[in-house]
Amino acid sequence: MVWLICPIVMRKIINIETQEVIPEDTDVLVLQAIPKSKKPPACAMKILREAKTIFVECGRPVGLIAEISLAEFDDVYRGQSLNEKDTPVPGIAQRADALALFAVTLGQGVHDQINELFEVKELALGSMLDSVASAAAEKAADIAERNFMDLLKAKGVGGVDIVVMRYSPGYCGWHVSGQKKLFQFLRPEDIGIRLRESFLMEPLKSVSGVVVAGKPEIHLIKDHYPFCSTCETHSCQERVGSLIHSKEDAD
């Protein structure tokens, strides 16, 4: 944990422009169950454009990131002791150069607008806006990751070959109840995110978790854990693959 030698612990609110998180069309259409291999119908593209316009008007993305020590993260990760027995995140964290907790949200306005569209029976538009927001929330989380990376570079932590990758409660064996301790440490209430008793975040279009900075290979995991069988996406493999390849391209 190289960052332990850097005594100033960072906690930072990240102001995000709505334009920065507008998702790619393909990322939204996949969430509408339109495969990348299929040509989307013209009506879907028209609705998508309209949904993006509404999103620009009502989205208020903002993020928060705070460095955390390995010992502190161990405690956060342990949460309510409901995690799966064997999970990859603790091992990855141990080999990291630095860790930070993060949370991002698109604000309550998007959620309200989606509900309103459904109420007035603009069903296709409401559903499309929901997909736009889901994809945008992931882009906001990408921005939080990049912010942490920039900070580490500024502090000279980790060398030139480090990459960052995020993990969230509710995935990869990290029980969603881990949100409780994550919230206690990070205090995302400061950017308008609340945690319900069921560990669900409000506004709904919010993402939280840990950003792990380190060499690309620390993130290499095999998706053979028992909980991987119930994972629909196995997106970890794609994400790790893209990290490795981007590093190779840079080299």
């Binding site: 339109i34 299929k38 009506c43 029976k121």
Partner: peptide, 15 residues
């Protein structure tokens, strides 16, 4: 043969 947006447009017409 069709996707979710087309289904939802039809559903709105149904309403």
């Amino acid at each position: 043969e069709i996707f979710l947006p087309e289904v939802l447009l039809a559903a709105k017409a149904m309403y």
